[in-house]
Design a protein around this nucleic acid. Structure first.
Lengths: 133, 133
DNA sequence: AGTCCTTGCTTGACGAAGCAACTATACGGC
DNA sequence: GCCGTATAGTTGCTTCGTCAAGCAAGGACT
């Protein structure tokens, strides 16, 4: 139980540190790009993005500001609702995601997956799907 | 893989939020008390505490300052090395830990363990030990 | 003892994220 | 069409954690 607590707390920190060191891309920005890349038309409303990233709306505003400044995301007014903004993944953003992807995978393996000897990874994957939803 | 990323990122946030809402005790402070309670004489050097909590030394200084202000730990000079300080868990700190423990357990269950149907929890526990070390 | 380097910890400055207050747009009732 | 309320996002302020610099004590070499 202690060990579980420690792992839960330190795993994202370890992965974030790796991403930052090897790619200069914080985990939260990577995840934001990742979620955008999977969305229809590679775009999402700010509020949807915030929800899916489990971030406050104001936090999301700032992440997108940083990504926009780097040219990875563009903000466009929502057509149906002029209050809303869509964050759109640019080609540069998609390329950045592809570039950073192996690092994320390697970090996740190194800090987590490689230690799961004896566990049924298929079932684990199913459980993750369930938790994430 | 996406799901795993999301879970790794959001699980500690969810548990921290629960701890804060139900106990007013952030996860990092809970973990600090927990680690101290398990140490010999319920005390640890600042640097050991920082390492075990996977926090920077300066971050640990600040956490211990907050815990000290609440009366949950005391700081005493290290006998063998006057540069060092030991953080000592007080009785009040131990009581606080016992009080917060069920909330932590419940949160961990709710957000994680309960979703692991079909997995061998013994092996998972072993894997966690391995990762944590 | 005196000088120099190292180690343990704290402090100052800064970036990141949250909450609450604010602005702008939408929508329902009249 | 006009008013009041609700919703989408941003901004100001505060808090937390990190890095780099600082300080104080240890330890080595002379």
């Amino acid at each position: 139980m202690r060990a579980l607590n420690r792992v839960i707390y330190s795993l994202p920190r370890a992965i974030d540190a790796d991403m930052l060191r090897e790619q200069g891309l914080p985990l939260i920005e990577y995840l934001t790009l990742m979620h955008l890349s999977e969305a229809a038309d590679r775009q999402l409303r700010m509020s949807e993005l915030a929800t899916i990233c489990e971030l406050s709306l104001s936090g999301m505003t700032r992440v997108v500001q940083r990504l926009e400044a780097q040219g990875f995301v563009q903000r466009v007014r929502c057509e149906q609702d002029a209050r809303g903004w869509n964050a759109v993944l640019t080609d540069a953003g998609f390329a950045r995601l592809e570039q950073a992807w192996p690092t994320n995978l390697a970090a996740t393996r190194r800090h987590f997956i490689d230690h799961l000897a004896g566990l049924d990874l298929k079932q684990l994957a199913a459980a993750m799907q369930k938790i994430a939803s």
